[in-house]
Computed example of a mutant assay.
Amino acid sequence: MTAGQADALQRLWPTWGLDIDGQEKIDLGELFGNDGPVVLEIGFGMGEATAQMAAADPDTNILAVDVHTPGQGNLLSLADRNALANVRVGNGDAIILLREMLTPDSLDGLRVYFPDPWPKKRHHKRRLIQPEFLSLAATRLRPGALVHCATDWEPYAEQMLEVLTAHPDFENTQEDGGFAARPEFRPLTRFEGQGLDKGHVVNDLLFRRVPHQEPSPESHQGR
């Protein structure tokens, strides 16, 4: 960790940081100081892309979660330097955040950019984008909320597409049911550039949370 990152953590964490401990529900309006839409970003690396997106869309709040301390310090430093009042940084497990600390329908979007692909077959169960994770996330996403994933690991991209397509709570925004072009609001990251230089193919997935399905009256007959 650089001295600047350590300084940003010490100065700004009490105001812009969130310890994910599962102890209480979060009032997102209170956390951000406004009632604007909130997007959860899981895994932000060093935070450059997060800061760019926050600057380009100041009316959208970004709750960015990671466990990488230098990255947390770097994002806080970028937010401070650029006066990005719409960024909050969470430290800890995003699953605990979703399950224990966020309320139903509290999020307007979910971003998962370049998560660990766990390329070995025996490690595939550790990948984040799984049916169980999507079911949990769906309970916290408002109908119409956008789920945006990106990866440069093609087998993982195919799995993401398969899992998201099969999940009843989400629908693909692409009419052909495939991958999306990188939207303008997602900046090209340094990590992504390195992958492209190596010939990697980057795939974006854009899915929407469908309206909650109410049980039909017929489903209660005969019970």
Rank of each mutant, 00 (worst) to 15 (best):
A56W: 00
V67F: 11
R126W: 04
H68A: 14
V67A: 15
S77P: 00
A137S: 11
H148L: 09
A54N: 02
R122Y: 09
A138I: 11
G71Y: 13
V112A: 01
N91F: 15
A145F: 07
G90A: 06
P70D: 12
Q72C: 13
T60F: 00
F133G: 08
S77R: 15
L63V: 02
F133T: 08
L78I: 10
F114I: 00
A137V: 05
H123R: 05
N74Q: 14
L78W: 07
T139K: 10
T139N: 08
G73H: 05
N86C: 09
A56I: 00
V87R: 05
G92W: 07
P143I: 07
Q72R: 15
G109D: 01
N82M: 11
R99H: 13
A145S: 15
A85V: 12
G90K: 05
V147W: 01
G71Q: 07
D66C: 08
D93I: 06
P104D: 13
L128A: 12
L78G: 03
R99G: 06
L98H: 03
D57T: 11
G92H: 03
R142H: 10
L107Q: 10
D66H: 09
V89S: 01
I96H: 11
P70E: 10
G73T: 07
R88E: 03
L63H: 02
N61Q: 01
S135D: 14
D105M: 10
D66K: 09
R140D: 09
A138E: 08
A64D: 04
P70R: 07
V65L: 12
H124W: 12
D57E: 14
D57K: 04
T139S: 14
A54D: 08
I95T: 15
H124I: 06
R81P: 00
T69D: 12
T139W: 00
R111I: 06
K121N: 11
T103P: 08
A54R: 00
N86W: 01
V65D: 04
Q72G: 04
D116M: 02
N91C: 13
V67I: 15
D57F: 05
T60V: 13
N91I: 02
A54F: 01
A137W: 00
D108G: 15
W118S: 10
G90W: 10
R99F: 00
G73K: 09
I129E: 02
H148I: 05
E132P: 06
M53L: 11
N82V: 01
V89Y: 08
N86F: 00
D80M: 06
I129F: 01
R111G: 01
N74G: 07
A94G: 10
N82W: 14
A137L: 03
P115M: 03
V112W: 03
N91V: 03
A56H: 00
V65A: 10
G71E: 12
L146T: 13
T60W: 00
N74C: 13
F114K: 02
N82A: 14
A83S: 14
I62M: 13
D108S: 15
I95A: 13
V112Q: 02
P117S: 05
V112L: 15
A55F: 08
R126H: 13
S135Q: 12
M101C: 07
R127H: 04
N82P: 00
V147M: 07
A138Y: 07
L98F: 04
Q130V: 02
P117H: 06
N74P: 02
N91T: 11
E132Y: 01
L75G: 05
T103C: 14
R111V: 04
H68P: 05
T69W: 14
P143M: 09
D59T: 12
T60Y: 00
